[in-house]
């Protein structure tokens, strides 16, 4: 079936299978920042923003994405740089596989949490699993980005 997808403010006319996950389509279109991890909705590395809300692209049907604004980390521009700098400055970026999804979720969290605390940050990021950094370095950087001491 043919769909029009709005990805990072660019319209793509593309053909998909009815049961194809958005993750698969994004990677076919060259958005390799969107990673395939567990592919079952548990690890969060496939996260993208759908109308500004972090969503697992492995569970989101591409056929349902038509009419919504899809944002990957490539679409965040300088906002992404600021988050990446905060994480890297704490030496937290190791293999980098979870990095793009963590940056996207942190970006959405900053917009959503009016009164961030360390507990709220941890809770918000519970769906982002990192296989190698142990989270502490990432959390230090994100706390600084969120303005939490």
């Amino acid at each position: 079936m043919k769909v029009n997808l709005d990805i990072n403010n660019r319209i793509y006319k593309t053909y998909i299978d009815a049961d194809e996950a958005l993750l698969s389509v994004l990677r076919k279109l060259g958005y390799k920042s969107v990673k395939k991890g567990c592919d079952t909705g548990a690890c969060g590395v496939c996260s993208v923003l759908i109308d500004g809300k972090p969503t697992l692209s492995c569970q989101f049907l591409a056929a349902r994405a038509e009419g919504h604004k899809i944002t990957t980390v490539e679409g965040l521009g300088k906002d992404a740089d600021e988050i990446v700098d905060a994480i890297v400055s704490e030496g937290a970026d190791q293999c980098g596989y979870c990095g793009p999804s963590l940056v996207l979720t942190t970006y959405a969290m900053k917009k959503e949490l009016k009164d961030p605390t360390i507990e709220k940050i941890k809770h918000y990021l519970a769906g982002n699993l990192c296989r190698c950094s142990g989270f502490e370095g990432q959390l230090r950087g994100i706390k600084r980005y969120m303005g939490v001491k």
Binding site: G44, Q59, A126
Partner: peptide
């Protein structure tokens, strides 16, 4: 609902 997987899961 708040402990079900993560925010990304619960948004969907």
């Amino acid at each position: 609902v708040e402990h079900i997987i993560g925010v990304q899961f619960r948004n969907n």
